[in-house]
Structures are given as structure tokens and as C-alpha cells.
Amino acid sequence: MPASPWPTSTPRPLPRAPTRSKIPADQRRSPLRTCVGCRKVRPQDELVRVARTGDGSLAVGRTLPGRGAWLCRGSSSCLDLAGGRGGFARSFRAPVSASALAELRSAMAADQQS
């Protein structure tokens, strides 16, 4: 009987399924998001989510429904940049009125003071 062209060694074991991360929860990084004003990528904890409601107004809240845009927490300059560059309109895929931006500016200023 002729010799087999295939090796006769034992097959390799299949790789194991990936396991959960062994990094403790307090050392894991939070998800990264991009500020629509300054365009810097930061951890989600350092940003505030702004959502557009059905009536066209803007509201601050992490769990609000709909499309959201992220802004640097406590930065009025990022809010000005996002309004001027059209960052909100791009993120929401809908126009944002100047009155909605003014309401958001006053709401964020009140949050900073409290």
C-alpha cells in the first residue's frame, strides 16, 4: 500500500470561544463619542447628549428617544461652534431653529449654575 500524501498527525483542537473581559468594571473604559462642536473624541462620561424632540425643540438627556448629538459637558464654546457650523442639523438630519438653540443655551447655563 502506497504512503498517504496527507500527514497522519492528530488534528489541532478548535479555538475556544471568546470569554468575557477579565478587566474589572471600574477599570474599563466608557464608550467614546465625538463632540459636534469641537469634534474631539472623548469618553461618554465627559459629554452631554442633546436630543431633538418631535416638536423641534432640543432637550438634554442621556436616555431620551430619537437621534442625539454629543457636546462637551459645561462648554458653551462647543455649543456655539455646533450651532454655527451646523453640527446639530447634521447630527439630527433635520433643521434646528435659532430659538431651539437659544432655549438649549439657557437650559445648559442653568444646569451649570446649579
Rank of each mutant, 00 (worst) to 15 (best):
C35H: 09
P65W: 03
R67D: 03
R16M: 09
G56D: 05
M1H: 12
L47W: 05
R16S: 14
Q44L: 12
R16I: 02
S77T: 07
A109R: 14
R85F: 00
W6M: 10
S77E: 10
L81R: 15
A25K: 15
K22F: 07
A25L: 15
A98T: 12
A89E: 12
Q44D: 04
L79K: 02
P65K: 00
A107S: 15
P31V: 14
T34S: 08
R28C: 07
V41W: 01
A82F: 06
V48G: 00
D55S: 06
G74T: 00
A100N: 08
A98K: 11
R33Y: 11
R20D: 12
A110R: 15
P7L: 12
S9A: 14
R85H: 04
S106N: 08
E46F: 09
L81V: 05
G61P: 06
W6N: 11
P24R: 14
R73F: 07
A25N: 12
P65D: 02
P31Q: 14
Q27R: 15
A69C: 03
S91M: 01
S21W: 12
T53G: 02
Q113L: 09
P24Y: 10
R105T: 10
G61A: 07
S9V: 13
G83Q: 12
G66K: 03
K40D: 12
R105W: 04
L81E: 13
L47A: 05
G66N: 04
G37F: 09
T10I: 11
C72S: 06
A59D: 02
F92Y: 02
M1I: 07
P11N: 13
D80K: 06
R20N: 11
V60D: 00
R29E: 12
G66T: 03
S9N: 12
Q27W: 11
S114H: 06
S99D: 15
C78I: 04
R16Q: 14
G56A: 06
A82Y: 05
L32F: 08
R42W: 02
K22V: 10
W70Y: 09
C38M: 07
L32H: 10
A102L: 13
C72Y: 06
A69M: 02
V41M: 06
V50C: 07
I23E: 14
D55F: 01
W70T: 01
G54N: 04
M1W: 10
E103G: 13
A89D: 05
V60T: 08
L101A: 05
W70H: 04
L64D: 01
L104S: 08
D80P: 00
G84E: 09
A110F: 06
Q112V: 05
A100G: 07
A100P: 07
L81W: 04
L71G: 01
R33S: 09
S99L: 13
R12T: 13
R16Y: 07
A82C: 06
S106P: 00
R39I: 02
A51F: 01
S114T: 08
T19V: 15
C38S: 06
L79S: 00
S75H: 00
G56N: 06
K22C: 05
S4T: 09
E46Y: 07
A25G: 05
R67N: 02
L64V: 01
T34A: 08
G37K: 10
D80C: 00
S76V: 02
R12M: 12
A100R: 11
S9K: 09
L81Y: 03
S106V: 09
R33A: 10
